[in-house]
Amino acid sequence: MEQEKTKPVFDQEAALERVGGDMEFLKELIELFKSDYPAKLAQLSKGLREKDFKTISETGHSLKSASGNLSLTRVYDLSFKIEGMGRKGKIQGIEKAYNELEEELGKIKNLF
């Protein structure tokens, strides 16, 4: 996991490029992400409790798509992992990644 920690939480330059330099639009998307992710996190946690790997991989997939578009680098890497592990049904690894994801998502609150 050390490798991810060296990456920025949010690569603003890359994110801006993805939206064609439209800062207002980017802010709007980040706000949307902030309001969306708690529900996703809750879904993941529920999936973990119930060992529902389908929900885990689908929620990981959805978080991955959203964070990828916003260049939320660490969230992206973690949800990528969670999606993959969800598919393989590896519960232990998921729990660890989930805790880290929760922590990283917490940092998103302070963006903008």
């Binding site: 939206v19 064609g20 998307l29 949307l32 992400f33 969306d36 959805s62 798509s65 959203a66 578009n69």
Partner: peptide, 17 residues
């Protein structure tokens, strides 16, 4: 067609622009 909101919005905006 994209179920994830942010991806869809980014895609739609890029095309519309």
């Amino acid at each position: 067609a994209e179920d994830e909101n942010i991806s869809r919005m980014v895609l739609a905006k890029a095309l519309a622009n």
